[in-house]
Design a protein around this nucleic acid. Structure first.
Lengths: 139, 139
DNA sequence: ATTTGTGCAAATCGTTTGCATCTGA
DNA sequence: TCAGATGCAAACGATTTGCACAAAT
């Protein structure tokens, strides 16, 4: 992660992506602030605030290319938007239902036991665990 | 057939929903064929095939009302559409990535251990486990 | 009579696409 | 040079919404 920051040029090259100005700028935004969960719109806004010129179309392209090349991981928890996680390792999430925010779940937790084998001819691609949480009700 | 309608009538009343013609027709489609995973568009199509007259807007309204009143469970696995499961009990899913299909995972499997407590002020709303599967690659 | 539900069409909204124009190797 | 990238605007597809009309209690 931190090494991703050091040489964005190399990171992109190793991911088979041309280090273009916008990809480097976006990579810097994504990887120089620790773990993050962004969606296209939030990254676009962040870029704008940082004075980085990128079109929304390029944001989408970049997020997908990064995902396809292992720099990001896509998370589906809200059917209205797609989230991207800078942490590509194996881990699970809390999803705050009231604010639509994602949080990484501390690793080492959640152990899944007794997973059934998938139906004939199918293999497991990933196991996603999402714990949906909401403000404690005070009844 | 006649008592079937009567039953649906009761089901809807107990869910605090007026047993209108379209709600009864949709309930029959949803609950008289065992476990199902539908999305708005598939239910709409099914209704059309069954000669049931319902507008798409009503399909959406009904799916949400049924969900809010415990007759259905909403599942988010694909950021482009929302699935509804007629099985409202505690269980998890296989998601076939190539066909965008959902399958219930046999119950009694998947035991989750060591779940971290949610952040301050938050309580668990649900724990969703989705095992994404794809055709076995033959490399 | 009042309340609630329905249908239609228009409006939203995140995301994708077509295409002309740039840019990095 | 030239394949690959970018930006813009139009296109898209699932879902929602506003509102007049119909049905349920």
């Amino acid at each position: 992660m931190f090494d991703k920051v050091q040489n964005l040029d190399v990171v992109l090259r190793e991911a088979n992506l041309r280090p273009t100005r916008q990809r480097i700028d976006l990579a810097r935004l994504l990887f120089s602030k620790g773990e993050r969960h962004v969606c296209a719109e939030t990254l676009f806004e962040e870029a704008r605030e940082a004075g980085v010129m990128v079109s929304l179309a390029t944001i989408y392209n970049t997020l997908h290319q990064f995902t396809d090349n292992g720099l990001l991981r896509a998370i589906t928890v809200d059917s209205s938007r797609t989230y991207f996680d800078t942490n590509t390792g194996d881990h699970h999430h809390f999803y705050l239902e009231d604010s639509n925010e994602l949080m990484d779940m501390p690793d080492g937790y959640v152990k899944i036991d007794n997973l059934p084998k998938p139906p004939e001819g199918l293999e497991i691609s990933s196991v996603d665990v999402v714990v949906r949480v909401r403000p404690t009700s005070k009844n």
